[in-house]
Design a protein around this nucleic acid. Sequence first.
DNA 1: GCAGCGCTCATACTTTCGTATGAATTTGCA
DNA 2: TGCAAATTCATACGAAAGTATGAGCGCTGC
Lengths: 146, 146
Amino acid sequence: MNRNIIIYGVSLGALLTFLKWIEYEFLVRAHASDIYMGLLALLFTVLGLWMGRKLTRKETITVEKVVYAGMPFQKNEQALSELGLSRRECEVLELMAEGLSNQEIADRLFVSLHTIKTHGANLFLKLQVSRRTQAVSRAKELRLIP
Amino acid sequence: MNRNIIIYGVSLGALLTFLKWIEYEFLVRAHASDIYMGLLALLFTVLGLWMGRKLTRKETITVEKVVYAGMPFQKNEQALSELGLSRRECEVLELMAEGLSNQEIADRLFVSLHTIKTHGANLFLKLQVSRRTQAVSRAKELRLIP
DNA sequence: GCAGCGCTCATACTTTCGTATGAATTTGCA
DNA sequence: TGCAAATTCATACGAAAGTATGAGCGCTGC
């Protein structure tokens, strides 16, 4: 186990956490009273990044190695954009991963069963699979879902 | 997305990082000059745990969900024996998680499609689900599969 | 021995899933 | 504003999955 990677893991974890917090707090709930929590997360980020910089002058590491090293799940946005998955397709994929049937997904998203089937077909095409379980398995590989 | 879980994830991540650092530094390399790095990791840990406590006063979350959200997989043998899954059922479950169809599983295990369906039915009964995707999702929750 | 369990296979039926194809509507962006 | 992409809905059919039920075989412990 490389210590540099460990420390970098913490810093990246904190950074990603902060970004997620920003997204959630400012775009979804907008509870101003909790802002200081975000600032603390920012502090985490800065400290972590500083430590990471200090410790990795000599060695360069890949991001993949770190994200898997015990940190909370972070979606692989690059793979996501490369695949060209749309917002709705991602939602369907996540619900598929929870084990919901097409009908249940349709009810959850307030659309028809046909729509979910269409999204599913496009999803399978983009992920190059032919069944929902394969899609979930592949999406996990690509870190599109936890 | 639950913010509490995110923050808890960071704090636990930091804690685990710290423990790993301890293990590495004191048991493997023992470089006394780098101790302040460990202290910073400890600071991370304390801050993270404090934030986690502060943010989870109202809601309680299970530790399992967080600790295993990126840790190396270890099969939950206790849950396995409590459910009473047989060896064959476990094999089928694992192959289901890989996204294989019943027919493919049958071919892989050199048995008939009927057998796999029977195993599947028993599996769903024991896991209290009704579809393979749900079974995989549930098995992941119970840490029967990675 | 034999009862119990796991594994196997089978038939028959229902449900869900996946594919093919077409089309209307909405949305994001140049 | 206009076009491309995304989203939505639909019909129809074949494939896969799931349920119900029954039964034979081999191993293990009492």
